[in-house]
């Protein structure tokens, strides 16, 4: 396994994914370590997706849904937040820093926001170092 930083971002198609597209249009660059996985709604995310991503070598994982009160599926973003909170507890139970996983809310037209989120997660990994699981997986 290489020691490159890899961050998985599960992005809601309506909010965060659009924000990332718009950042592209505006040519606001961000770290290439982020890997965007498009989901129809942040509510699609299960705690398993977050845990599996760490097992597969992610240094950090974030879930990004629409702003609270503006979910295209009414409350999918709230369900996502619960999943993220749950994942944080499970991770800290096994000794992985809870800061490695985070929930964000992004609106489709906030071009600046997506790069900011990526910057935030990258700086967390910079501080914490690469995932301790990286050593044990091949």
């Amino acid at each position: 396994m290489s020691d490159r930083m890899r961050i998985v971002g599960f992005c809601c198609s309506h909010g965060a994914y659009s924000s990332a597209d718009l950042a592209g249009v505006m040519r606001i660059s961000y770290s290439p370590s982020v890997m965007i996985i498009r989901v129809p709604c942040a509510g699609r995310i299960d705690v398993l997706h977050i845990l599996r991503a760490f097992r597969d070598g992610a240094d950090a994982v974030f879930v990004a849904g629409c702003l609270e009160g503006n979910c295209h599926f009414e409350y999918g973003n709230f369900e996502a937040r619960k999943m993220v909170e749950h994942a944080k507890r499970l991770l800290s139970d096994i000794g992985i820093e809870a800061e490695r996983v985070e929930m964000f809310n992004v609106a489709s037209n906030q071009a600046w926001r997506f790069p900011e989120i990526v910057g935030e997660m990258v700086s967390r990994v910079d501080k914490l170092g690469l995932s301790p699981l990286k050593k044990v997986i091949k």
């Binding site: 659009s18 702003l67 009160g69 964000f104 609106a107 037209n109």
Partner: peptide, 22 residues
């Protein structure tokens, strides 16, 4: 509307600017 911007952070504050964008 596309020259305006969402003024919400985490919570939607109903500025509706995203309407046309979406």
């Amino acid at each position: 509307a596309s020259e305006l911007c969402c003024k919400g952070v985490d919570e939607c504050i109903r500025c509706d600017v995203c309407l046309s964008m979406d």
